[in-house]
Design a binder for these strands. Structure first.
Length: 576
DNA sequence: CTAGGGTTAG
């Protein structure tokens, strides 16, 4: 940037200063300040306001304030800029102080304050200001809805959203994002559908907000529809959009599409590449994940600690212990990244899955930080795979001490006991659960049919076509039993006799979803199901048999990986 | 001047 060789007028500086501010180029900003003075624009409000904004964006709010104090003909915009500058720098007290001193307030000044209180968690104060302000525009409403969303109050946000006299694209974006952050994915999709019925057109921010919801729910059809919507309507395909597309396709089980988006992305940054690596890892494509990492190094894209989480995950899912350890060491050696508890968790998984249980245990004991319960849980899962009851007990009892209300620990240990034939111990554990009032988290599976997502809970009867679904499921079970299927009752965590145990097992949510899928989808496409918990041994066998005897492939995502069932076998090779 | 956006260990 050489301002010397450019003809400047008083309108040039605000534009250039703005870029300097957004890029946080302090030096450049200061240099430009010099030119502003040299060219005699120093006294003008417009130039001064731009300078204030630039300094505040660069974190130099006190210099901004000095400029502000020297402006003699301050207008509202100038005042607003200074107030907003304090807010940007987290100087909420000064912002409020200056707001109170303002000789004149239009709507924007109030908006800044409403937004500020929302940002610092004072929703109540934001609301009283919102109610108090003399006039409101869309921005005021959006700021207030956003305040509720940030405070995690989705329902209050929605209440206000519904009351809005007018909504623009930001209003919809705020509310959809709110649902997604509150993990209310179905609500997010429903709102997105409502938006289509409104007069506001979705933009690139909207798709970035909804796509993660599609990913979490496994709503591939809707995700694909949004992808084609983006192309049809020339929504800007920026790096954010591409990142969420990759994530969505990956989580919906379509790695190929994720890869296509990655290859076609014009701009590739750390986020985008890390997402691609994570997706490949999730699907057991370790070599391809390593390839993306090599690409990053060649292209000079700096890996982050999250990149390494993906790489380590890729290694552990396919048992590449040595390579995984190499990546772990590479983090600090070559990239000055300090391994976090997540990376130690991956390392424990890597070692544990591969059967090196003692080494995994040693890793936990030698971690430089307090091991999070998830790390212990990882070791417990490894004990399940390798049937090490002794270590499992030690780890599980420790975990139960740490998190007595987490049902997962009891369930996992109980399954390990059952797998080993120790029914008495399993029963004792169920008694303990009962005594402590720990409820088993209900299994839930969702499936998308005709652009709608249907959710099923184990043994539920809420679906309108419930009778039909159960009849279909019974038909499938009868057929599979004829082919040799016998329910593995060890997966059922209930203190009941065998018959009843078989019943609860037969109606696990993924089976209901599969029956619904067979009833309602055409005969070529795979049936895609997303489950909130880990798939059980029995359902795993069941799905393999369905894929064989009903000639349909099924793609099931459980809470930690994908299972692609076809022709009687599963992509995880029964190792999960 | 003021409202909205991406990846993360089981």
């Amino acid at each position: 940037m050489r301002a010397r060789s450019v003809n400047c007028d008083s309108f040039t500086f605000p534009v250039v200063l703005r870029s300097a501010g957004t890029l946080r180029r302090r030096r450049l900003g200061e240099e430009l300040h010099g030119y502003v003075l040299k060219m005699g624009f120093g006294g003008l409000v417009i130039a001064s306001t731009a300078l204030i904004d630039m300094y505040c964006c660069c974190g130099m709010w006190s210099v901004g304030r000095e400029v502000f104090d020297r402006v003699c003909d301050r207008d509202v915009i100038c005042w607003n800029t200074m107030v907003a500058g304090y807010v940007k720098n987290g100087n909420f007290f000064s912002a409020k102080e200056l707001f109170d001193e303002m000789p004149e307030r239009n709507v924007s000044s109030w908006n800044t304050l409403v937004d500020m209180y929302g940002k610092c968690g004072e929703v109540g104060l934001a609301r009283s200001l919102f109610d108090e302000m003399p006039a409101r525009d869309v921005i005021s409403w959006n700021a207030m809805v956003s305040g509720y969303v940030k405070g995690g109050e989705c329902d209050a946000a929605r209440g206000l959203f519904d009351e809005m006299p007018k909504r623009n694209v930001v209003s919809w974006n705020v509310m959809i994002t709110g649902y997604v952050h509150g993990r209310r994915f179905s609500d997010a999709l429903e709102l997105f559908r409502m938006m289509q019925g409104s007069d506001v057109k979705p933009n690139e921010v909207t798709v970035v907000a909804v796509l993660p919801a599609c990913g979490h729910l496994g709503a591939l059809d809707l995700g694909q529809w949004i992808h084609s919507y983006i192309r049809r309507n020339r929504v800007k395909m920026d790096v954010y959009v591409n990142t969420t597309l990759i994530d969505m396709y990956g989580k919906c089980g379509s790695v190929e599409d994720a890869r296509r988006v990655f290859d076609n992305a014009e701009m590739k940054d750390t986020f985008l590449c890390s997402t691609m690596i994570e997706v490949l890892a999730m699907h057991g494509k370790a070599d391809e994940a390593f390839g993306v990492f090599d690409y990053m190094r060649r292209a000079g894209i700096k890996p982050s600690d999250i990149t390494f989480v993906g790489l380590l995950k890729a290694c552990s899912h396919v048992g590449l212990v040595e390579i995984g350890v190499e990546y772990f060491e590479m983090m600090s050696k070559d990239f000055e990244l300090v391994p976090k508890v997540e990376h130690y968790g991956c390392l424990v998984d890597l070692l544990g899955r591969a059967g090196h249980l003692e080494k995994a245990y040693e890793t936990i004991k030698s971690m430089p930080m307090e091991p999070h319960p998830i790390v212990w849980g990882t070791l417990l899962s490894a004990c399940r795979i390798h049937c090490n009851v002794k270590l499992a007990e030690e780890v599980a009892f420790h975990l139960i001490e740490l998190e007595p209300q987490n049902c997962g620990h009891y369930v996992l240990l109980s399954n390990i006991y059952s797998k080993d034939g120790r029914w008495n111990e399993a029963a004792k554990l169920r008694k303990i659960m009962k005594e402590k009032g720990v409820m088993k988290k209900p299994g839930c599976s969702s499936i998308e049919v005709d652009n709608s997502v249907y959710e099923f809970f184990a043994g539920d009867c809420v679906h309108p076509r419930c009778k039909e679904i159960y009849e279909m499921l019974d038909k499938i079970i009868t057929r599979l039993k004829a082919e040799g299927y016998s329910p593995k009752t060890s997966s059922a965590l209930h203190d009941v006799d065998i018959d009843e145990k078989e019943q609860t097992l037969l109606y696990h949510s993924e089976k209901l979803a599969a029956a619904f899928g067979l009833l309602n989808t055409n005969h070529k496409a795979p049936i895609r199901i997303v489950k909130n918990l880990r798939i059980c041994d029995d359902c795993h066998v069941f799905m393999k048999m369905v894929s064989k005897y009903f000639g349909r492939s099924l793609i099931i995502r459980d809470c930690n990986r994908f299972h692609h069932f076809s022709d009687g076998s599963c992509s995880c090779c029964d190792y999960w």
